[in-house]
């Protein structure tokens, strides 16, 4: 008898892997907590240290909002990035324990395995972003669009995380090493955040940074999330998007490109390295 969720169908393989990685996340809440700590520290420190100074620059671009409101979407994207890094580390663990090879020697499709894992990561990221949004709200961030706005920000955070999840998992398959995966993925995290509209409006950034910020996916994610919580278009004057919807499609495109590259890499590195 064919069982739809048995692992024989592509969908079944995805569900089985989502379940397994979900179970592992529940068993190891430490990972969930650790990737929340740095963004929360950033939220508190940035508000305390730069709140007054940055507030002026922010009001020059988006009048009428406090720095808490401006910063919250950036911290959401930071959580998404940090959480995506731990996804790659999880895959390296699987390679080290031999589970990855065990799955490759089974009829499961490697792409379904990766997709199932990423879906489980999405669930984890939803929980983490929800925690950050609540804390941001308690610290004074204004969410003009209410519950729908919160749901929207969580959704954008999840979509934004897609490309970095693919990137960190690709790093895992390439390096098969926890330290290298963590190091590279973490190393890129801060430049990605600082070279974007996360902490200051693009106009307030040094001139040499502005061209980078205009094509940085973080800018697109942050600007969409900001527009959602404010209920109006505050997307920077970007070369690839002028509205939240256009910026959102840019994010989806980046996700798609990284996912295709990641799956391609997975397929070529897992079957053979013979002549």
């Amino acid at each position: 008898m064919t069982d739809e969720l048995s692992g024989n169908s592509f969908g079944g393989d995805v569900v089985v892997n989502t379940k397994r990685w979900g179970l592992k996340a529940i068993r190891n809440p430490f990972v969930l907590a650790v990737s929340l700590i740095q963004p929360l520290v950033f939220l508190v420190l940035f508000l305390t240290v730069f709140g007054n100074v940055a507030g002026t620059a922010v009001n020059g671009t988006i009048p009428g909002i406090g720095y808490e409101t401006f910063l919250l979407p950036a911290i959401v994207m930071q959580v998404a990035l940090a959480s995506a890094v731990s996804s790659g580390v999880g895959l390296v663990n699987d390679i080290e324990t031999g589970m990855f090879e065990k799955i490759l020697a089974s009829p499961m499709r490697p792409s379904a395995m990766l997709l199932g894992k990423i879906l489980a990561d999405f669930v984890r990221i939803v929980v983490q972003i929800a925690v950050v949004v609540v804390i941001g709200f308690l610290l004074g961030a204004q969410i003009e669009t209410g519950v729908l706005g919160i749901l929207g920000v969580v959704g954008v955070g999840v979509v934004f995380s897609g490309w970095y999840l693919a990137f960190s998992n690709a790093l895992a398959v390439l390096t098969e090493d926890q330290e290298s995966t963590t190091l590279v993925a973490n190393l890129l995290q801060l430049p990605l955040l600082f070279l974007s509209s996360s902490f200051l409006p693009i106009k307030a950034l040094p001139e040499w940074i502005q061209p980078v910020a205009l094509v940085n996916p973080v800018t697109y994610g942050v600007d969409v999330a900001r527009s959602i919580i404010l209920g109006r278009n505050v997307v920077s004057n970007l070369p690839l998007a002028n509205s939240p919807l256009e910026a959102f499609f840019v994010l989806l495109t980046v996700d798609f490109l990284f996912a295709v590259a990641g799956i391609f890499l997975l397929l070529i590195t897992t079957r053979s390295d013979v002549q």
């Binding site: 008898m1 064919t2 069982d3 969720l5 048995s6 692992g7 024989n8 079944g12 089985v16 379940k19 397994r20 179970l23 592992k24 068993r27 190891n28 699987d94 324990t97 031999g98 589970m99 090879e101 065990k102 799955i103 089974s106 009829p107 499961m108």
Partner: peptide, 24 residues
């Protein structure tokens, strides 16, 4: 040895069942 250290013994075997499409 290839087992998932975070899952229980039974969960590991169940996962293998799902991996190979053993019916419910």
């Amino acid at each position: 040895t290839s087992v998932d250290p975070e899952l229980t013994v039974e969960e590991n075997v169940r996962f293998a069942c799902e991996m190979y499409g053993v019916s419910r």
